[in-house]
Simulated scan of single mutants.
Amino acid sequence: MSDVHARRPIKVLVVDDDPFVRAGLVDLIATDDGLELVGEAGDGRAAVETASRLRTDVALVDIRMPVMDGIAATGALRALPWPPAVAVLTTFDLDEYVYGALEAGAAGFLLKDTAPDEILRAVRIVAEGGAMLSPTVTRTVISRFHRPDAARTRTARAAAARLTPRERQVLATLADGMTNADIGDLLRLRESTVKAHVSRILTELGVSNRVQAAMVARDLAS
């Protein structure tokens, strides 16, 4: 059978100021035939320069780095003409910088001691447009660091008014960090239908990922 339709590897950029952490992530990526290392960088600015030159699907980005930290790097990477999905890495599960990175457009949140298989799974999930945060982490990060803003809430209400009643139900579940499968079980919908609803919700709300949509849902509930 022809291999013409085989999927191309997911191109990954590793960004961390610790050379030992970078080396470990590089070695891990090499174990998966579906992934391809496009480059590595020791700070956010170098990461943005690399991603602007080389096609990058996913950037694994450390939060605390010199020159340009993970928050600024996430925003800059997401602003590129062909933006990579970003999964942020941190040593702390409640690092306040993580919220900033999520607000800047990060689609994933990973502790550095996450199991190797889970890191590889996260790369695939965010490459496909999903979000890699456990429901517990999503709820905790949003609850602890999210601060409602009156102007943002007015904007959120106007955007939510364009959603169908079912889409508003789905949006409410995102605030609890529920997965597509969980939402499907709760609302008795096919997972593919949930995915379609989430896609339209992101478009109508003008956000780039479901974590940001969850923040909007929290604004609406405030």
Rank of each mutant, 00 (worst) to 15 (best):
D176P: 07
G108E: 07
E96P: 15
E40T: 04
P19I: 06
L37S: 01
A76H: 05
T173Q: 15
R7I: 02
T155N: 10
P81S: 09
R210C: 02
I183A: 14
V61A: 08
R168G: 11
L54K: 09
F145Y: 12
K195Q: 15
I63P: 06
N180A: 15
G184H: 11
A72L: 12
D182K: 13
T153N: 13
G42K: 05
D117Q: 11
A131M: 06
T173M: 15
P19H: 01
D62L: 05
V58D: 08
S143L: 05
R64W: 11
Y97F: 15
V21T: 02
D43K: 07
I142Y: 00
V98P: 01
R188L: 14
V194A: 12
Y99I: 00
G44K: 04
Y99K: 01
S222M: 07
T56S: 05
R210N: 03
I119M: 03
A73P: 05
D219V: 01
P165W: 10
I183R: 11
D33H: 08
L77S: 00
E49H: 06
A30W: 00
D69K: 03
A127I: 04
D182Q: 15
G70N: 10
K195N: 14
S208H: 06
L13M: 01
K11H: 04
P84G: 07
V4I: 13
R121K: 12
T50R: 10
D185S: 15
T90G: 08
P116W: 04
V123I: 15
L94C: 09
T203I: 10
L205R: 02
D57C: 08
R166S: 12
H5E: 10
A107F: 06
T56P: 00
R53H: 11
L89M: 14
K195Y: 11
L187E: 10
A214S: 07
S52Y: 02
V12W: 01
L174C: 11
A217I: 05
A159H: 12
V198A: 00
R166I: 11
A131T: 11
F145C: 02
R218E: 11
T74D: 12
A150W: 04
V137T: 14
R166A: 13
G105F: 04
I71F: 13
A30K: 04
Q169H: 15
L110Y: 04
E118D: 15
I63D: 13
A47K: 09
L13R: 00
T179V: 13
M215K: 06
A122K: 02
L77Q: 00
V216M: 08
A172L: 13
W82P: 04
I10L: 03
R144Y: 03
Q212V: 05
A159V: 08
G34N: 04
E118F: 07
T138A: 14
P83I: 13
A161P: 06
I10H: 06
V15W: 02
R152Q: 14
L37N: 03
L202E: 10
F145M: 05
T91R: 10
I10Y: 01
V88A: 09
V14S: 00
G184S: 12
E49N: 08
D182N: 13
L35Y: 03
S208I: 10
R7K: 08
R147C: 02
V14I: 09
D149C: 08
L35C: 01
K195M: 13
A151C: 03
D32Y: 02
A159Y: 05
V98T: 15
F92K: 10
V98S: 14
L220E: 11
